[in-house]
Design a protein around this nucleic acid. Structure first.
Lengths: 136, 136
DNA sequence: CTTTGTGCAAAGGCTTTGCATGCTT
DNA sequence: AAGCATGCAAAGCCTTTGCACAAAG
């Protein structure tokens, strides 16, 4: 693997890393590396695209960010509140709601063990259409 | 859009389309376009990769196939048994189990409407590790 | 001073598309 | 005969990677 190891215990504190973290936190819903990069560029930052990719990947590996695949296959990142939860994402406007569905966890665990599966990936995201967009 | 319109009502019946359908049905778990293409090649078929992509896309658009994004971001297709269900996929060996979780449907629907969301995308797939692979 | 992070550009991998030809209908 | 489907190759996109230089500890 390259120099930027995912999940490294103590990453160095750089201007770029700070800017990237700041940008991701500022973005409301999930943002792709390119979106983060665009935002930084518009803010006058000269951070390179590769650095954004590497940093987001590292932060996700370290648990600092959540990452999902959006329907287009791109990787989207987002700062998450602590604790386990899922996201309900509007397919049209991108509005995101964090939802906790305690019963879902049990259900999934139960269903999985019934079939002899373990370590289920819980990165489950739901894409739908919010009322605002549905009526528009 | 190109000639191959997705979800066209009555697609033409061609040798390629038949071979592709056959190949997808033969593949146990979800298969990517490239995997389908590989299989066809090994069977001696000269179907082009682009045709496989176009055809799978068309069949998925027509509801004939299910398509999901695997963790690597690739599009995987699979023939589905009728009725609503989800898939439990082993991240290691690819073994797939179709599961129906009736309670999940209610849960999701309820949660969604609580937040004013509709038309929830139910293409939920669970990736985990099956016992065979976990003990290996 | 040593090691990690950054930039740039090139390479990679998957998917889509343009265009001429062949096959269905 | 008319029009969609196919093949091939080229183009597109997103993401990763190699390498030299800059910065952090």
């Amino acid at each position: 693997m390259t120099s930027t190891d995912l999940g490294r215990p103590n990453p160095r504190q750089t201007r770029q890393r700070a800017e990237i973290r700041h940008a991701v936190e500022a973005l409301a819903s999930f943002a792709t590396a390119q979106e983060v990069h665009d935002r930084l560029r518009h803010e006058g930052s000269g951070v390179g695209l590769a650095t954004v990719y590497r940093t987001l990947q590292a932060m996700a590996g370290g648990g600092e960010l959540d990452s999902i695949r959006n329907p287009d296959g791109q990787i989207a990142y987002r700062t998450c509140s602590p604790g386990h939860h899922h996201h309900l994402i509007c397919r049209t406007c991108g509005r995101t709601v964090e939802v906790t569905v305690p019963q879902l966890e049990q259900l999934v665990r139960g269903m999985a063990s019934d079939h002899g599966f373990a370590r289920i990936d819980h990165e489950v995201e739901f894409f739908g259409v919010c009322t605002t967009c549905a009526t528009a």
